[in-house]
Computed example of a mutant assay.
Amino acid sequence: MPFRPPILLPGLLLLLLLPGCFSNNRHQGEKLYAQHCASCHGDQGQGLARLIPPLAGADYLADHRAELACLLRNGQSEVIVVNGIGYHNVMPSNKGLGPAQLTNLLNYIESHWGNEAAPRTIREVQADIDKCH
């Protein structure tokens, strides 16, 4: 008669493999920032002199919270004023980022470098995207 492992063994094996089936989004915002934003805004959100606005301690983030998802998704080419300084450079769009990715990216930006915004939900970001022009 062939050996049959107890039913417990396959269940235990499944539990060991299960974490590998899910992605870890805990640090996705930081990774997305490094991939899409840091080359212009800097590793610490410091910006670049009067060419690219800082994200660190930026009043624009709090003053334009409902517009940020659209700004990230669609980019911008208008003058924006951050901490009293006008910036007029084109920011490229990130149309490939979905609502969950935009949420994680915004939550990262808005909780680092002196920024202290309330965390966003995917539902909130999706509602903001739905209002984009």
Rank of each mutant, 00 (worst) to 15 (best):
residue 104 N to R: 03
residue 108 Y to D: 10
residue 109 I to N: 06
residue 66 A to K: 14
residue 106 L to C: 03
residue 106 L to P: 06
residue 93 S to P: 07
residue 78 E to W: 12
residue 89 N to A: 15
residue 67 E to N: 14
residue 100 A to E: 04
residue 81 V to Y: 03
residue 107 N to Y: 06
residue 88 H to G: 07
residue 103 T to I: 01
residue 65 R to H: 10
residue 100 A to H: 08
residue 72 L to E: 02
residue 67 E to V: 10
residue 79 V to G: 11
residue 80 I to G: 12
residue 110 E to V: 05
residue 67 E to P: 15
residue 64 H to I: 05
residue 84 G to R: 12
residue 101 Q to N: 12
residue 99 P to A: 15
residue 94 N to L: 10
residue 82 V to Y: 01
residue 76 Q to R: 15
residue 101 Q to C: 01
residue 65 R to C: 00
residue 98 G to Y: 05
residue 89 N to C: 04
residue 106 L to W: 01
residue 104 N to P: 07
residue 81 V to D: 08
residue 80 I to K: 13
residue 80 I to P: 03
residue 94 N to P: 07
residue 75 G to W: 00
residue 63 D to P: 08
residue 69 A to K: 03
residue 73 R to W: 04
residue 88 H to Y: 07
residue 80 I to Q: 09
residue 67 E to L: 10
residue 99 P to L: 06
residue 108 Y to L: 05
residue 63 D to S: 11
residue 101 Q to E: 10
residue 99 P to T: 01
residue 83 N to G: 08
residue 67 E to M: 08
residue 71 L to N: 08
residue 88 H to M: 14
residue 102 L to P: 01
residue 95 K to R: 11
residue 73 R to Q: 10
residue 96 G to Y: 09
residue 96 G to L: 07
residue 66 A to Y: 02
residue 91 M to P: 00
residue 82 V to Q: 00
residue 107 N to M: 13
residue 92 P to T: 00
residue 73 R to G: 09
residue 86 G to E: 13
residue 71 L to F: 15
residue 88 H to L: 09
residue 71 L to E: 10
residue 66 A to R: 15
residue 106 L to F: 03
residue 83 N to P: 12
residue 72 L to T: 11
residue 72 L to C: 06
residue 63 D to W: 14
residue 68 L to V: 05
residue 95 K to D: 02
residue 80 I to T: 06
residue 98 G to A: 02
residue 79 V to K: 15
residue 107 N to D: 12
residue 101 Q to A: 09
residue 64 H to E: 09
residue 64 H to T: 13
residue 64 H to D: 06
residue 104 N to L: 03
residue 75 G to P: 05
residue 88 H to V: 08
residue 64 H to F: 10
residue 69 A to M: 09
residue 64 H to V: 08
residue 81 V to A: 11
residue 85 I to P: 15
residue 99 P to H: 13
residue 78 E to N: 13
residue 83 N to C: 07
residue 75 G to A: 02
residue 82 V to S: 03
residue 64 H to W: 13
residue 82 V to W: 01
residue 95 K to P: 08
residue 74 N to F: 04
residue 110 E to P: 07
residue 76 Q to C: 14
residue 101 Q to Y: 05
residue 92 P to M: 06
residue 82 V to D: 01
residue 81 V to E: 15
residue 78 E to L: 04
residue 79 V to W: 12
